[in-house]
Design a protein around this nucleic acid. Structure first.
Lengths: 203, 203
DNA sequence: GATCGCATGTAAGTGGTTACATGATTTA
DNA sequence: TAAATCATGTAACCACTTACATGCGATC
């Protein structure tokens, strides 16, 4: 079963916006997908080569003096077809790994203040993200007005906004619940583990 | 010899709940952290060995007939100290990779129906997760009443609930915005790429 | 009689980052 | 003069997953 190489489609997608060099692809990803995606040169350059080998892109070399020649890649029709096909495929759910939840889960074994600090740190990050998204939204609306992609790009920003608002609310709610715990935490004890012997409910 | 970072602390954390075998650790992770964390045997067994080598855990062998001997691992004081130290360290923000946003970002290049379908599929997943979390919440409250870990475990469930509620709202909002786009989408065009020449705002 | 649960583990592969090498040009 | 920007690329490493090997006993 060939697993899906997502980086390949990210590059294909960026190339669908116009011919570009590897360097430009990286910059474009950072500037447009940067809030929910990233790619390193270590991925981009080998992928670019494989795209040409598979006939999904062509490359032409722009001679330059004083710096390496620019290799500009252009999507072929097959390349665009491959992208469109992938875009239509359903997104599979991935559990992922949420580090703050891992830390919080074991947090009852140490002073409640430690968990509250963690929540505050977390809150600060998402507060910052929230205002960042607001700025991006304004900037998109003013610079991309009329572009058919605008509603789609705004949707990706809106995702971030909904997410950070929700996590901020969760932080506050959780902090107030944990804050109500009396101060004598931190001593390990013999306990039953949670989540085991769960009669077919979870997972 | 794999040198592991976060997985190591996940195992250490599970071991802080009581002595366990590798097999039990996997089951316990699935049953308690399963909604936001996962580990494979390919990680767990080598980690267990390295924990013993580093003095963070001890192992004793329970002889068994008809099946492999059970290796039961117990946290040492140093092991518990290492865990507590890690728990207190701040969580660094990670951009991550959100596949649905990658697909949506390029969605304007194909019929709007394709993106709406994607949103519906996504919605179904988070609807299901929402009710799953509700069940877990009830189950935790009824089976773990009085346990000092309960508020912390409920907090991890609450995270999932806030998240799925937010994403559901985002889906509906986005679907209604995209739904308002007229039907003649899908033809590629020469366009400026968004997000470039952003004067120090993004990233 | 098939498959699930128990129980161990490893080898190979995947998808990814980081650090490095090179070096001219522009900007602070 | 230090740094960032432009521009290419690779080798080494890292964390992690998947598939496999083994095999008994209980359940469907």
């Amino acid at each position: 079963m060939p697993r899906v190489i997502k980086s390949k489609y990210a590059v294909l997608g960026i190339l669908s916006l116009g011919p570009m060099s590897g360097y430009e692809i990286k910059k474009t990803i950072e500037g447009s997908l940067g809030n929910f995606w990233s790619e390193s040169y270590g991925q981009i350059y080998p992928i670019l080569r494989s795209l040409v080998a598979e006939g999904l892109a062509t490359s032409r070399t722009e001679e330059q003096t004083g710096r390496p020649n620019r290799h500009v890649y252009t999507l072929t029709d097959t390349g665009r077809g491959t992208l469109v096909q992938w875009l239509a495929e359903p997104v599979e759910y991935d559990v992922g790994r949420v580090e703050i939840l891992l830390k919080l889960f074991f947090g009852w074994q140490l002073p409640v203040e430690d968990s509250l600090t963690k929540l505050r740190e977390f809150r600060t990050v998402y507060e910052g993200l929230g205002s960042k998204y607001e700025g991006i939204e304004q900037w998109l609306k003013s610079t991309q007005a009329g572009h058919p992609g605008l509603p789609y790009w705004l949707a990706t920003v809106s995702y971030g906004q909904h997410l950070s608002r929700a996590l901020l609310a969760w932080c506050d709610e959780t902090a107030s619940i944990l804050g109500a715990i009396e101060g004598d935490q931190g001593h390990p004890a013999e306990v039953a583990t949670p989540g085991r012997k769960n009669n077919g409910r979870d997972d």
